[in-house]
Simulated assay, not measured.
Amino acid sequence: MNVNGVADVLALRNALLQRNAALRDVTSAPTPNALRGPDGSAPPSSFAATMQTALQKVNALQEQEDVATEAYERGETTDIATVALMQQRASVSFEATLQVRNKVLTAYKDIMNMPV
């Protein structure tokens, strides 16, 4: 590999490391404000409201992923790494939501089967 090829590989590596750092900053631990409503109101007080807020966030991630994928398919963007990351983030959030649903259903069944 010549010197230009090594420089290209190093530049590509640095670009990937910068993107990873930016994504890490975006997806870092949630702050107390992350639980606040869209209008800055206090966090939801009931389980149903908390679940609804979480489902809305998952839905928003799914919609962002759809928009990014469609833009890539139309050729409007060429950054496949961003599209792939958005797909993975949406997939992970959906899977986490599915696991929470399964746990809630299991707990409900356990409670309903308890002798009174």
Results as ranks from 00 to 15, higher is better:
1 M>I: 14
1 M>P: 13
3 V>S: 14
4 N>R: 12
4 N>G: 14
4 N>K: 09
7 A>M: 12
7 A>E: 13
7 A>Y: 07
8 D>L: 09
9 V>M: 15
10 L>E: 01
11 A>D: 08
11 A>W: 09
12 L>D: 11
12 L>Q: 07
13 R>T: 05
13 R>N: 10
14 N>I: 12
16 L>R: 12
17 L>T: 14
18 Q>S: 11
20 N>E: 04
20 N>Q: 06
20 N>C: 10
21 A>R: 05
21 A>C: 05
22 A>N: 03
22 A>V: 04
23 L>Y: 03
23 L>D: 04
24 R>Q: 09
25 D>M: 06
25 D>P: 04
25 D>E: 05
26 V>A: 08
26 V>R: 14
28 S>V: 12
29 A>W: 04
29 A>F: 04
30 P>S: 03
30 P>K: 03
31 T>R: 10
31 T>P: 00
32 P>D: 03
33 N>G: 06
34 A>M: 08
34 A>L: 07
34 A>D: 12
35 L>T: 14
36 R>L: 05
37 G>Y: 01
37 G>M: 01
38 P>M: 02
40 G>T: 00
41 S>C: 08
41 S>H: 06
42 A>R: 14
42 A>P: 11
42 A>N: 08
42 A>S: 11
43 P>D: 08
43 P>C: 01
43 P>T: 06
44 P>H: 01
44 P>R: 02
46 S>R: 06
46 S>Y: 03
47 F>E: 12
48 A>Q: 00
48 A>I: 01
49 A>M: 05
50 T>N: 13
50 T>K: 11
51 M>G: 10
51 M>Q: 07
52 Q>E: 13
52 Q>D: 14
53 T>H: 12
53 T>C: 09
53 T>Y: 11
54 A>T: 05
54 A>Y: 05
55 L>A: 10
55 L>Q: 09
56 Q>A: 12
57 K>R: 11
57 K>I: 10
58 V>I: 02
59 N>K: 12
60 A>F: 05
62 Q>F: 10
62 Q>L: 09
62 Q>E: 07
63 E>Y: 15
65 E>F: 02
66 D>E: 13
66 D>T: 14
66 D>P: 05
67 V>W: 00
67 V>E: 02
67 V>D: 00
67 V>M: 00
67 V>I: 01
69 T>R: 09
74 R>E: 09
75 G>D: 00
75 G>H: 00
76 E>Q: 00
77 T>H: 03
77 T>R: 03
80 I>L: 15
80 I>W: 15
83 V>H: 02
83 V>K: 00
86 M>K: 12
88 Q>N: 10
89 R>Q: 09
90 A>G: 04
90 A>D: 05
91 S>A: 07
92 V>I: 15
94 F>L: 10
95 E>V: 00
97 T>A: 12
99 Q>P: 11
99 Q>H: 07
99 Q>R: 10
99 Q>A: 11
100 V>C: 02
100 V>L: 00
100 V>H: 05
101 R>T: 02
101 R>W: 09
102 N>I: 13
103 K>N: 08
104 V>P: 00
105 L>R: 01
105 L>Q: 03
107 A>Q: 06
108 Y>A: 13
108 Y>W: 11
111 I>H: 04
112 M>A: 06
113 N>I: 02
113 N>S: 08
113 N>T: 08
114 M>D: 04
114 M>I: 13
115 P>W: 08
115 P>G: 14
116 V>S: 10
